[in-house]
Design a protein around this nucleic acid. Structure first.
Lengths: 203, 203
DNA sequence: GGCTTTGTGTACCCTTTGGTAAAAAACCAC
DNA sequence: GTGGTTTTTTACCAAAGGGTACACAAAGCC
């Protein structure tokens, strides 16, 4: 199941659990950003030494990318499940309320690592910055596709612009990540979600 | 006028213009973030040596804070002027369309440095992270005050929740900064602005 | 038991980081 | 010119950055 490494049968067994270590790394990257996280921060949080980190994950950049994958596959992810809802309105509703809940959850850093993990960063972080940007853009495209389908199904009025609607929803979702880091409560974000839905076309 | 230093009459004159150098520093910080910007990046962009930088601006942290001040006092700032508009709706309108224009202006990096300058960062950047967070929160509070005034003036319905309205608008504005870094065009952001205004109560 | 294979721990590599000491240079007042 | 004052230049510092060599330890295989 672990996407990171197939445990070999020979040789000394690993003394740590790869997914647990990845989860710790995710939390550090989430809180401090890519540039703001040092290898010492990582090895300390993960409870392993540098050679173990490099053997298991490649390097800092690859570790970050694997942490992002781990993040998106977590049980509490809300984006993809929301896309499956039967109507466009319910898609938006579940996504907005899911974000309000998830981004303020005190079990992990506030906000969203795909937004804040490497927003403005050094040349050395250009690859991960691009990777996160692509994920944000792809999220918008998935929303757009979903709304186009809704129009085709007659679930949304034919004169609705799916791209604008997706961009609007994406803007609010990404803005909620910033609000969460500002200290907004889940209740405040739920009210933002409610207002956002007021501008949302219903069949 | 320069808030940075009163030019002394004695001694060797400065070989660079403080405000020009500050503008260059702002651009680097804006593009790379606080953690992602090194002193070499700064001195190269500003065209000065490190001792000159330290003499004129203190250190990296103080230079960043002065760059933020410079940023907020620029001619093309839109936030404070929008607050002065006669009605709450016009306040929101000017702020949203101002953001759509400003955050995609190719004369400088995309987005907003108050949002992306130090969103997730190292312990060493905790001070500037906090400073930016405070500015974002204060922006929301100013919006809230403005909307409360609008309610008192009868410009907004009495049953409107000024706090929710301010949080909603702040969320969209901060989300627009992310969209701009994603590569959104000013036209796309204008359409987001238009949709946002649909949820805005009118008298 | 030995052999092979893999992971761990320590100690190290070079580069870059933020920041400064000290001397030379450019100005003003006299 | 001389003295006082400030800025520039060059060279440097200690610490931290990402990354690795190497010896040793722990497992399966035979």
């Amino acid at each position: 199941m672990s996407a990171v490494s197939c445990t070999p049968t020979m040789g000394r067994p690993r003394a740590f659990d790869v997914d647990t270590a990845l989860e710790k790394a995710l939390e550090v990257f989430w809180r401090n950003g890519y540039d703001g996280t040092s290898l010492s921060d990582l090895t300390e949080a993960m409870g392993i030494n540098k050679p173990s980190l490099y053997a298991a994950f490649g390097n800092k950049e690859q570790l970050f990318l694997k942490a992002i994958e781990f993040y998106e596959n977590r049980a509490c992810s809300f984006f993809l499940p929301a896309l499956e809802k039967p109507t466009a309105y319910e898609v938006a509703e579940h996504m907005l309320y899911g974000a309000a809940m998830n981004m303020t959850d005190s079990d992990h850093p506030q906000g969203c690592i795909v937004v804040q993990g490497a927003l403005s960063c050094s040349e050395a972080a250009a690859t991960v910055k691009e990777a996160l940007k692509n994920r944000r853009v792809e999220g918008g495209e998935k929303l757009c596709e979903r709304f186009k389908r809704a129009i085709a199904e007659g679930d949304l009025p034919a004169d609705v612009d799916a791209e604008v609607l997706a961009c609007y929803l994406g803007t609010v979702l990404q803005g909620m990540a910033i609000q969460a880091t500002n200290g907004a409560t889940s209740e405040q974000l739920r009210q933002v979600a409610q207002m956002t839905l007021q501008a949302f076309p219903r069949r």
